[in-house]
Design a protein around this nucleic acid. Sequence first.
DNA 1: GCATTAACGAAAT
DNA 2: ATTTCGTTAATGC
Length: 243
Amino acid sequence: MPSDAIRAALISRLRVSSGISEDDVKEIEALPISVRQFPAETPVVRDGERATDCCLIVDGFCVRSKTISSGKRQILSIHIPGEIPDLMSLFLHVMDHDLTTLTPCTLGFINHETLRKLHHRRVTLAEMFWRDTLIDAAMFREWIVNVGQRPAPARLAHVMIELRERLRLIDRVDGSSFEMPLTQEQIGEALGITAVHANRVIKQLRQDGIVEFHRGRVTVLDEPKLLELADFDGRYLHQSPTL
DNA sequence: GCATTAACGAAAT
DNA sequence: ATTTCGTTAATGC
């Protein structure tokens, strides 16, 4: 895979959400990144491990999750190409959750030391990574509200719209449909409901003519209804650079 | 392995 | 009283 393709999604994200300068684009293009392939459903970094690199998703989908002693797993966030889900490990070295692939993934590892040097060399890039982790925190706040307060159909609708709005930044939305490669079991783990109930919720959205969900792909049939159901206000994603 | 549905009961609204 | 949800179990893919 050519070097520019490895960085393309990251750069296009930073371009639209942070207004990156051309000098900083060159810095990222020059970053040493070691690329590895991962199969689906494979841990990248585990809870309790000490991380030495940050992981850029070049291609594929990942999730962050925590598993409690009973064995139940809570999915905390879904991650897409161009994101660095474990950026915080640069300062919080011991992982406090798992990072796992959902689909087969191409992952790029950036050494902590080189990333730290980059921070010192380019303050504007450091600020962009700051901003990125703050948005990450904002997304967690929204996720808590979603799982803690919304009824199950709204939870699903909200996760779907958020994922779509993030996929849009990297040009991965195809008209009214986009990828959401989770099984119903995993949707349950993300929403805090059982797989059986996840199935009922999906069925209801289908019957109400709001979305179709089939083999990891969402097709929106009724956008206004979906927005209303999800109670979605995308401000927390902070997708345009500072007003 | 994954999706779907029924049946039942408990809990929430 | 009705809706939402978990559990169990069965069925089909």
